[in-house]
Simulated scan of single mutants.
Amino acid sequence: MTIATNLATNWSRQRLRQVLEGDGVIAYPTEAVWGLGCNPWSEFAVDTILALKQRPVHKGLILVAASVEQIRFLLDPLPDEVRQRAESHWPGPVTCVVPDVHSQIPDWVRGDHDTIAVRVSAHPLVQQLCRIAGMPLVSTSCNPAGREPARAPWRVRRYFPDGIDLMVSGSLGSSRQPSTIIDITTGQKLR
C-alpha cells in the first residue's frame, strides 16, 4: 500500500492517475467515513473492491463526482424536473438514484439495476480526487460487509492489509452518518 500524503504535489497527483488508470483501488476520507474507490469503467478494479468488501455485484455501487458537470452525461437524458430535483441536492451528502437511460454505466457498477446511485460531494478532498481522475469514481464505505465503516487510517489498514494500491491521507468531513439515498424519480428516501 502506497500512501500519498499531499495531493498538491505533482508526484501524488501522477501516482493517483496511474493507480486509477491501472485498475487499482484507492482508500480515502469522505464526508463521514473512509471510502474505497476506483475507476468505474475498470471491471478488474470494481471486482477487487467487491472482493475486499465481500459484497455481491448485484447490489450495485455508488458513484461520486466533483461536480454536476462530471455526471452531466447521466442527467441530460432525464426529464427537466427530475434533473433539477437531483441537482438541488448537490453538492452535499445526498446520493440520488437516477435512471441510467442509455446504459452508460457498466453492469459491474450498476448491479441488477437500470439506475445508478450518484453523489456530487461537497468534501474538498473527494472533489479533488475526482478532478484529478477526470471522472466520477466508485465510492463505497471502507469495510468488509457487516463490519463498522473505517473512521481512521489504522482501521483501513487493519481491515485491508492487502488489496489497496493507494491510501490518500486527509480528514473526514463533519458528517457522522452516511449519505442519505433518494430515488430521484419517486422522491422515496431509501436510506
Rank of each mutant, 00 (worst) to 15 (best):
Q14T: 13
K53L: 05
V68I: 15
V118K: 01
T5H: 15
M1L: 10
T2L: 15
I71K: 01
V138A: 10
V94A: 05
D112H: 14
P91V: 11
V57L: 11
P136T: 04
A122R: 10
N10T: 15
E31M: 09
M167Q: 13
Q54N: 12
L61V: 01
P161T: 07
P77W: 00
V98R: 03
Y28I: 02
L36T: 08
D112T: 03
P91G: 08
R147Q: 15
G35W: 08
P149V: 12
E81R: 02
W90I: 10
C96K: 08
A150D: 05
Y159A: 02
C96T: 08
M135Q: 15
V168E: 11
R13T: 12
G111H: 09
V156C: 01
P77G: 09
K53W: 10
A152G: 07
S179I: 00
E87S: 04
S121W: 06
V118D: 08
Q14A: 15
G187D: 09
R158H: 14
M135R: 15
S169P: 00
D114G: 13
V109F: 08
P178Q: 02
C96N: 11
S103R: 12
D183R: 03
D112R: 14
M1R: 09
P79C: 03
V109E: 03
A133L: 08
N143W: 13
Y28E: 07
D162V: 05
P56W: 00
P124E: 08
V156K: 00
E43N: 10
D183M: 01
V98I: 15
F160H: 04
A145K: 11
R147I: 10
D165T: 07
R110Y: 10
L63D: 09
Q177Y: 11
L50Y: 05
V68N: 04
C96E: 01
I71E: 11
C142T: 10
V64K: 09
L7I: 03
A51T: 15
G22Y: 13
I26Q: 12
P149F: 04
G24R: 06
S121N: 06
I181N: 03
Q188R: 11
P153T: 05
V118S: 04
L50T: 05
Q70N: 04
W154I: 10
I71S: 00
H102N: 14
G170S: 01
D23Y: 03
A150K: 02
A145R: 14
T48M: 09
A32H: 01
R176T: 15
V64Y: 01
L75Q: 07
S103D: 14
F160C: 02
A145H: 10
P91Y: 12
V120W: 06
I132T: 11
G111A: 02
P93D: 10
D162E: 14
G134Y: 00
A152I: 08
A122G: 13
K189V: 14
L7R: 02
Q18A: 13
S141G: 09
P124K: 14
Q14H: 14
V33D: 03
V98L: 13
L78K: 02
L61C: 12
V138W: 08
V25D: 14
W41M: 12
Q84K: 13
